[in-house]
Amino acid sequence: MSEIAAKIIVVEDEKQIRRFVRSSLEEDGCQVFEAETGKQGLIEAGTRKPDLVVLDLGLPDIDGVAFIRDLRSWSSVPVLILSARSTENDKIVALDAGADDYLTKPFGVGELLARVRALLRRRRARGESGPLIGFGDVQVDLARRTVTRQNQQVHLTQIEYRLLALLIANSGKVMTHRHLLREVWGPSFVESNHYLRVYVGHLRQKLENDPAQPRHILTETGVGYRFQQ
């Protein structure tokens, strides 16, 4: 997949989970370092200069969110969270603290690899993507601010366009409701989730083949949205 093996740090206290995550990532051509505790993970992240951190939210020594805040103060390395389903709120807090994506336990190797690849691709492609983005039968020209679908111009309002551009710019990454509202509508709208939901609905109506079963603007229920090319 890549010339140089990507360096990945796996911070997880459960040995068996660490083991299979390691073996499947190595199978995929990555170089994996393990850390059993949060403190150890931070030290590894500081010395190894990884391309990705896979982080279990329920660590025995430090809170996962504190880990992310600490890491974010000196590094922009992508962070993939592993968490149990019962804690939507923990995911939101972790994502708002700077995590890039999450996987709900239990997860399969396929899902893990897909998320890891997407995050690594994003990191490599940073700043290199051209102004033209295509997904499904839609073409977006970020330079000319035009959206076409099946070669027909699609009319978007300013807010719709801003929302779409933001989602595209963070392709593959989970964006929390709060984050999207702050970026598109402004800080005073961070609690107005219904705005976001209605506008996402508009975008799906205009850009998705079946708005009820979207393929590109995906819902992460209780958390936010994810754009997928």
């Binding site: 459960e14 989970i17 299979f20 199978e27 239990p106």
Partner: peptide
């Protein structure tokens, strides 16, 4: 209590699913 229970039950399940998965993908 519920989230501790959830964590304790899901951790072995995660390991099971993952390990079984990596067996099918083994080379």
């Amino acid at each position: 209590i519920l989230s501790a229970l959830s964590h304790d039950l899901r951790t072995p399940l995660t390991a099971l699913v993952g390990l079984a998965d990596s067996m099918t993908l083994a080379r």
